[in-house]
Amino acid sequence: MWSSQLSDWYKHMKTLLTEIRSAVMVTLALAVVCCGLYPLVVFGIGQALFHDKANGSLIVDTNGTIQGSRLLGQQFTGEKYFHSRPSAAGAGYDATSSGGSNLGPTSQKLHDSITQNVADYRSQNGLETNAPVPADAVTASASGLDPHISPENAELQVGRIAKVRGLSQEEIRKLIRQNTDAPDLGFLGDPGVNVLTLNLALDRVQPTGGAAR
């Protein structure tokens, strides 16, 4: 009887060890294939076919200085630039700390910050005190790095930019159109004006930034 129990126990232990071996070896095999080969293959193909995109769609000026990424917003608050959306990423557009405000619909804090943003937006752009303000202009994005503003938001800022820079509104609208990402395939997603590329384009048209301020 003892010997049969012992041999049962021995059999169970042997099964257990076989199964543990399977678990350990498959973990290592998957690590090599899925976590080594796979990302390297994608890295190789991506770097070969889409070098610029795989490295962050960086904007580099003629001196070789990296000015940012076409895909990531930057903070702009000066009069002569189109303003980007409010950002909850770090101190503002911190691309190592992405995220939203995560404030809910009944949040006092959100209510107060939107109140402030609406007042600022109206005064900066010379709007009536009861003029509706585009939603994207006064709310923080999900990533805190939203590169876009809505076309309506851009249009409301045209007057200010034209005045500060002494450019015609038509000229500025043309730049807006050139820096607008249309919906993919004509109907997927919403159109957005890329604030960074638009502001860089403005500076290229007028490097000094217009009237000294």
Binding site: N102, A131, A135, S141, A142, S150, G192
Partner: peptide, 26 residues
């Protein structure tokens, strides 16, 4: 609540959303 503060109603609730996705795709 936000629309009473002057946020345009047409834009919907854009807090925590990205412009390229808009309301629907979010």
């Amino acid at each position: 609540i936000h629309q009473r503060l002057g946020v345009a109603a047409a834009g919907g609730n854009m807090e925590g959303k990205e412009v390229r996705f808009g309301i629907f795709n979010s």
